[in-house]
């Protein structure tokens, strides 16, 4: 495989890029394993994987500083791994074990890890935006140089919490970054059936909010732009709407037959919009070196399954704990 990519101006070092690639690959292999284990009948509930959207998760999360917090969506595995959650803790949660990141109380759509600033995946579309606005308010009131980040999709820009949160965040000039992952489908509904505008950045314009737009399949671009967005918010200039144009290269949920888009469309997206392909092409690595990254990541993922399977089942009556503090 030919890899002729001189470092572009402002690009990251090869070493850094290798690291970003490895993080994205970890998400990809993890999600593939989740699909496999779900189909094998190991996993309960409802699973949404982030295949195709790895560059957004890695680019944004790698730009976060210690003390920053974030909220995610129903499609949260990528954000969790990208921010440093161990695959064991994530897989154990999907298996409903006490060793899971939410100790079996949450599941795929309710991942939490307060220590790394992960204040919850949210199964209600748009559900996490108000709380991140409030976390940003707390940072401002306490004069702490921290930023709160809310991930959400294009579909969420149609819900009230989105509009109320951006309005309030801008009004109060809060240190928040609202990260829109526009994968062009709200579950099965394509953009033209749910969005009256093509350019979602205009949503932010309505609030007078600073917005940035980035190719969400280019991890370097996401990292750099997210860094600028976080810096802007952290310096007290107000919130930022960060629009990441991305593609979900699989169904909405594991098992989704995707009747809403053609096989040709999906095939073309996979050929042209895979963020791993993009990054691999920029990496100055031999096939052997790439294979060795793959090997290391696959072992980690495989080990997470073993860890999860060997985990501790909660007692049924544990369901009555953690209701009140």
């Amino acid at each position: 495989m030919a890899k002729v990519e001189p470092r572009r101006r402002g690009g990251v070092s090869q070493e850094r890029l290798r690291g970003l690639y490895r993080e994205m690959l970890l998400i990809r292999r993890f999600e593939e394993k989740v699909e496999e284990r779900f189909r094998a009948g190991d996993l309960s509930g409802f699973l949404h994987v982030a295949i195709g959207q790895e560059a957004v998760a890695v680019g944004v999360c790698q730009a976060l500083a210690d003390g920053d917090v974030f909220a995610s969506t129903h499609r949260a595995h990528g954000h969790a791994l990208a921010r440093g959650m161990h695959p064991n803790a994530l897989m154990a949660e999907l298996y409903g074990k006490l060793e899971g990141c939410s100790h079996g109380y949450g599941g795929s759509m309710h991942l939490y890890d307060v220590e790394i600033g992960f204040l919850g995946a949210n199964a209600v579309v748009g559900g996490g935006l108000p709380a991140m606005t409030g976390a940003a308010l707390a940072f401002k009131l306490r004069k702490e140089p921290r930023v709160a980040v809310a991930f959400f999709g294009d579909g969420a820009t149609n819900i009230g919490t989105f509009h109320e949160s951006l309005n309030l965040g801008q009004l109060w000039q809060l240190p928040a970054v609202y990260v829109c992952e526009n994968n062009h489908y709200a579950e099965s509904t394509p953009a033209e059936q749910q969005l009256p505008i093509k350019d979602l950045a205009k949503r932010a314009v309505a609030f007078g909010m600073h917005s940035m737009k980035v190719d969400g399949q280019d991890v370097e671009e996401v990292l750099r732009t997210a860094g600028r967005a976080l810096e802007y918010a952290r310096s007290g200039k107000g919130p930022v709407f960060l629009l990441c144009e991305t593609y979900r290269l699989v169904g909405h949920y594991v098992g989704d037959p995707q009747v809403y888009r053609s096989k040709e469309e999906l095939h073309e997206l996979r050929e042209t919009q895979d963020p791993l392909d993009h990054t691999r092409a920029k990496l100055d690595l031999s096939d052997d070196e790439l294979a060795s990254i793959d090997h290391e990541v696959e072992e980690l993922v495989e080990a997470s399954v073993e860890f999860a399977k060997a985990g501790t089942d909660p007692r049924p009556e544990d369901a009555l704990n953690n209701i009140y503090a």
Partner: peptide, 21 residues
């Protein structure tokens, strides 16, 4: 004083409360 935004008022309260306020 807040805008007329009950979701955001309560939600912002949740977020600030999560931070220990």
């Amino acid at each position: 004083n807040t805008p007329i935004s009950e979701m955001a008022i309560v939600g912002a309260g949740i977020g600030a409360a999560m931070q220990g306020m």
